[in-house]
Nucleic acid binder design. Sequence first.
DNA 1: CCGATCATGTAACGGGTTACATGATTTC
DNA 2: GAAATCATGTAACCCGTTACATGATCGG
Lengths: 201, 201
Amino acid sequence: MSVEFTILGVLIDSPSHGYSIKKQLARSYSEDFGLNDGQLYPALARLESRGWISMTVVPQKSSPARHLYRPTTVGRRAFREWLRRAYPGGRPVRYDFLLRNEFLQKCAFLSQLEPDEVGMLSAQRLSEVERRLSDLEKVLEKLRERSSDPFRQMVVEFGIRYQRLWRDWLFDLMAKNEERVSRPGLDPRSDEIQAVRSNHV
Amino acid sequence: MSVEFTILGVLIDSPSHGYSIKKQLARSYSEDFGLNDGQLYPALARLESRGWISMTVVPQKSSPARHLYRPTTVGRRAFREWLRRAYPGGRPVRYDFLLRNEFLQKCAFLSQLEPDEVGMLSAQRLSEVERRLSDLEKVLEKLRERSSDPFRQMVVEFGIRYQRLWRDWLFDLMAKNEERVSRPGLDPRSDEIQAVRSNHV
DNA sequence: CCGATCATGTAACGGGTTACATGATTTC
DNA sequence: GAAATCATGTAACCCGTTACATGATCGG
């Protein structure tokens, strides 16, 4: 269900073909928003079979024909319902941090590694974060120049703040890791031993 | 692959049975880390069939027998390799914000709704965020009392900062939304019309 | 007696990821 | 001549989610 609505939304903004949807998303949210083909084309097919969009073939001279998709009335209605729909009361919206992020997953077990190994992993992650941060900052600037939809700007703004959160947090992590070096005491595996000794359950 | 390593890591800390793994994770990361049964038990089976863990049945008086899992030597080695493994150079680590989060997905299209509808959705999301924030703060406090692994504390710390990011960002979003009320000008659908008029591609 | 807790799983479905397959045109 | 861009898709695999299925004990 998830990516489908984004695609539908883009089509409501302006009818277009698969390849162009990809481009639009990359342009508004950074290249890393890589909507892959194996997701895009089947999603379009599903939307069509559900009657939410309809397709016309537009032949091109000197390049494969485009499949131009347009939202139907039913599709527009479904989209608006989705937009308005609040999350039904109790539903927890599962862990939206931690999972899906390998670094955080690893973090929980980092005391098993030597401090310098931890340092290397963190440094690597940091450089990735900074690359993304500058990407997104450029994207936001462009959106501002075009004075595009303020809510879309806010989405990118979120991304920027998210990268900054990572950056600051990584600095703190590295500091914690340094502390471990200066105060040795515990060798990397001591936690494990303690835990095993302590019990199960 | 993803949850499997977390499970394996927990088993390396201390051998235990499925149900207890669930509990441990809930305890260290908040109840919202709901590792569901349909994920947990098959994952254990896969880990076993791969030879990374081994199982012994431990009968209980007055409750179903426990299946106690222990990491094997191969399993420990695989885990350490995973821990140490840096993300192979180029791999982009797809969009880790925006997707998987319905609210952000919706945000991109929020100008299609009336300001008060946007207000309601944001307020709802905000209350969810605050609930989580206080949950996680309690978790962190407990971890500190037990003076548990500093890296695990950092994971929860990340979660807290993440919720705070959401909170602050939602305030800004609500402010932007208010601005829209005071300066009417654009009716909710004007963007759509502009876009359609402007062109496709 | 009811609901929570302990304890195990399976089945069906949907969706994301990667890789494969094709082929013309444009740019360096 | 090679690589990128435009343009479409399919197939296989893995994984996550939800719901179903079972059953005993314990506390209120």
